[in-house]
Amino acid sequence: MTVENFQALIANVTGQIQDRPLDKQLEAFLNERFPPGSPEFEAIAAACRDAVAAGWMCEREHGGIKFGRVVKPCPEIHGFSVDVVEMSDVVGPQHAHPNGEIDMIMPLEGDAKFDGHGAGWFVYGPGSVHRPTVSGGRAYVLYLLPQGAIEFTRAAA
């Protein structure tokens, strides 16, 4: 698995969602069109496992979270960036999504859930804020950010 091959897998998804608003209808579309167990979902999940094993994905670590930006926003993936994190029973840093965030949740061990959601797709709309949390096990979470926009914020005291 190379970055170029991985980018091509992602382009199959982003090409079908590039002009859609980031909302619950998009989430439903992704879970219907690319559900866990589908060839596309499983190919991306396998690519993540292979890339992590090869050392070029999730190559950095902080606070028990392995992470890394895999692809910067570019025309080939319709202006999205791609980041992948590996989390295990941990709460990540609070951040905002100026343009929204599309999450692909891939449980690896246990009954891992990302922000309360199991395997599949979850969409945060523009302007949303959260502290990413994986509970019940270990998971990869791939997130697509329109124009790569993310803002790390401080949690309210």
Score class of each variant (00 low, 15 high):
D19G: 15
A155S: 14
S38F: 00
P75N: 05
P132N: 11
R49I: 06
G148D: 08
A156Y: 01
E61F: 11
D115I: 09
Q7N: 04
H95F: 12
T153P: 00
A11M: 05
L26V: 07
M1K: 11
S135M: 10
A8F: 03
E61G: 11
R138T: 09
A28H: 09
N12C: 08
H78Y: 06
Q16T: 14
K72G: 00
Q7H: 04
S38Y: 00
A157W: 03
F122C: 08
V71Y: 01
A157R: 14
L145P: 14
G92Q: 08
P146S: 01
A119L: 09
T133H: 12
V52F: 13
P107F: 01
S135I: 06
D89E: 12
R20F: 12
P98Q: 05
K66D: 09
F122E: 08
M1C: 08
M87K: 13
H95N: 13
H97K: 02
Q7K: 15
S128K: 14
L22G: 03
K113A: 15
V52C: 06
G116C: 09
W121K: 04
A28K: 13
A51R: 01
N99T: 10
Q7G: 05
V129K: 11
G127A: 10
A119D: 02
S128G: 06
G92I: 10
S135G: 02
V90S: 10
V71G: 01
V84Q: 06
N31L: 05
R33G: 03
E59Q: 14
P132D: 10
F29C: 09
D103W: 02
A28G: 07
K66E: 12
G136T: 11
D19S: 15
S81P: 03
G79S: 05
E40H: 05
C74E: 08
F41E: 09
G68S: 12
P146V: 00
E61W: 03
H62I: 07
M104N: 05
Y124H: 15
A47W: 04
I105W: 00
